[in-house]
């Protein structure tokens, strides 16, 4: 039991890294990875939202949609629920934990319809995870996102000082760097099966 949970967690962080391996959530990955502290703020917010979103969407899918035979509605319903949830969390945070809102606040609206968040909830369902496994999987994916953001923010801070050819400066060299980081992550493929063997 514990072993399978650890496998799901590590799989989310390393092997099936959503950003670098499945190419979900590329928008914040390129948009908010200029500075390490911004990247970590965004990563934390994504973990936070992924956990809440999974906790809300798993019961809705399994208790409402599946008994009614409406599984095909999951995309629409999940977007609706996630967007509401993020807004709700933002309102509550602003009222009760202003300091956390100040640090996550600007990133929360960005995540409302982030495909990584929607992707993790849908993939949890299609993988047939139970509630606990879904939560662990979301945590793993969120941590993987944070890891990718932090790694890439580090790469980009080096890129800023590099002397790239003029036609490559800015976005082109960033995309090339992202592809190299993604290739590096392919090295983790197959590691999970043998992790606890």
């Amino acid at each position: 039991m514990l072993k399978s949970l650890i496998l799901i967690l590590m799989g989310g962080v390393l092997v099936n890294n959503y950003v670098l391996n499945q190419f979900l959530g590329i928008c914040p990955f390129l948009g908010v990875s200029k500075k390490v502290n911004q990247a970590s703020g965004m990563g934390m917010a994504v973990i936070f939202v992924m956990l809440f979103a999974t906790a809300a969407t798993w019961p809705i899918h399994n208790l409402i949609l599946v008994p009614l035979g409406l599984g095909y509605l999951q995309t629409i319903v999940f977007i609706l629920v996630i967007a509401t949830l993020v807004q709700f969390v933002e309102i509550v945070l602003k009222r009760f934990i202003p300091s956390l809102h100040a640090s996550l606040g600007i990133y929360l609206p960005l995540i409302t319809t982030n495909c990584a968040v929607l992707g993790v909830t849908i993939n949890n369902i299609s993988a047939g995870y139970n509630f606990l496994e879904s939560m662990v999987s979301s945590l793993g994916v969120g941590l993987g996102f944070l890891l990718a953001m932090l790694l890439f923010a580090g790469v980009r801070s080096k890129l800023d000082d590099s002397n790239a050819p003029k036609c490559f400066r800015g976005l082109p060299v960033t995309l090339i760097a992202a592809s190299i980081v993604a290739m590096a992550f392919y090295g983790f493929a197959g590691i999970v099966e043998n992790l606890l063997a």
């Binding site: 409402i64 629920v81 509401t84 309102i91």
Partner: peptide, 18 residues
Amino acid sequence: IIPILICLGIAAVCAIIL
């Protein structure tokens, strides 16, 4: 009708919560 009602229902609940 049923999917529409379900979607509307969930949307309405979301709206009320917000």
